[in-house]
Amino acid sequence: MLLIPCPYCGNRPEIEFAYGGEAHVVRAADPGQVDDAGWTEFLYCRNNPRGDHAERWRHAYGCGRFFNVKRNTYTDHIEASYRIGETRP
């Protein structure tokens, strides 16, 4: 079980969190301006790196906040966690 640093509550056990997929996948402000290829990319295409990965987690059984985590998918080491809207470290 990972120990996830919630930017609001501090280190908490993974069991309190829900995974939210890759971070920084931006939903266009006006989806109507995005072409089909772009929208398909937004809907379905994700990176699947072996190594550093920026991903969303929600402290579902805690403060309820979504936030971002930079985790190495190979070692599971978490390098940083940061709030929604903050730039990726």
Binding site: A18, R58, G64, R65, F66, I84, G85
Partner: peptide
């Protein structure tokens, strides 16, 4: 509820 919270917190804050 989780889906709504997601949009509210991350897309429509």
């Amino acid at each position: 509820l989780a889906m709504m919270e997601d949009y509210l917190q991350t897309e429509f804050p």
